[in-house]
Amino acid sequence: MGNRVKPLDEVEHKRLVLEEFITGEAVELEVNIGVIKQGQVLAQNTSTGKWEVYDKAATSDGLNVPRRICKGEEELDTDATTDNLVAVVLREGRVDRDLIVGLDYKTDYTGTRELERHRIYLEEVLDNETN
């Protein structure tokens, strides 16, 4: 039993979702958009209804509006298949901002504001040394 307990300084804090306000949902991903990782910020393509990687520089199809965050623990390679892939995403909640992929909260204020408008809040999580 004693070997199951780790000292506090060895505990890893790598939990993406800190709190979920509404249960996550499964969304259909567009194919050939690359590898979707845990924490990837997603936007919904308004012409197809499928979800793609958020692109701050996009000018059409809603891809410049971040709306969900992929919370699945395994990477999804959309280039390796022609089948419809489904990802589990966070609809509303709090996440560790340092584990987000595809949005720089330090410079992308519009993207951060859009996530907050959709009730996804990027939180600072202190590591063990600063507690």
Rank of each mutant, 00 (worst) to 15 (best):
Y54K: 08
E20G: 10
K14I: 12
A26N: 15
T59I: 11
M1E: 14
I120H: 04
C70D: 12
N84D: 13
E28Y: 06
T110R: 11
G72Q: 05
S60Y: 02
D77K: 02
E114M: 15
D108L: 02
L90R: 05
V35C: 03
E114H: 14
D9W: 14
L99G: 09
G39N: 01
E116I: 03
L8Q: 09
V5N: 01
D96V: 04
G62V: 03
E19L: 14
R119M: 02
D9L: 10
T46I: 09
R4H: 07
A43P: 05
R97M: 11
S47Y: 11
E74N: 11
R94D: 14
L115S: 06
T107L: 10
R4E: 11
Y105F: 13
I33L: 03
E25I: 15
L122N: 06
L63T: 09
V35G: 06
R4D: 08
N32P: 01
E116S: 13
T48E: 10
D104C: 03
Q44I: 12
N45Y: 00
N128V: 10
V53L: 11
K50L: 15
T112S: 12
E116T: 11
T112V: 13
D104F: 07
D9G: 03
E116Y: 05
D98W: 01
E25S: 15
V27G: 11
N131A: 07
E19Y: 13
D104V: 05
D83S: 13
G102M: 04
D98V: 00
D127H: 02
V11N: 00
D77Q: 08
L29P: 05
Y109M: 13
T46A: 12
V89Q: 09
V5Y: 02
V95L: 10
D127M: 00
K50H: 13
L115W: 05
A87M: 02
I69T: 03
A26I: 09
T107Y: 09
V88N: 11
V35M: 09
I22H: 07
Y109G: 13
P7Q: 07
L29N: 08
R94I: 08
V101I: 15
V35W: 08
T48S: 15
E75T: 05
E92S: 05
T82H: 06
R97C: 05
E92M: 12
Y105I: 10
I22G: 00
G111L: 04
G49R: 05
L8N: 06
G34T: 00
T110A: 15
S60Q: 10
E123Y: 07
G72C: 01
I120F: 07
D77Y: 06
V31Q: 10
T59P: 02
I36D: 06
V101P: 03
N84C: 08
K56M: 03
K50T: 13
E92K: 14
L16V: 09
D127P: 08
D98K: 12
Y109W: 13
L76C: 01
G111I: 04
I36H: 04
W51L: 12
V27M: 12
D104M: 05
E75C: 02
E28N: 13
D96G: 02
E124L: 09
V41S: 03
A43W: 06
R68E: 04
H118T: 05
K56Q: 05
D79I: 09
I69M: 03
R4G: 07
K71Y: 07
E116A: 13
N64D: 15
Y109V: 14
T46S: 12
D9Y: 12
V65C: 07
V65E: 11
A43S: 15
L18A: 06
N128Q: 12
L103D: 08
A58S: 13
E129C: 01
K56Y: 00
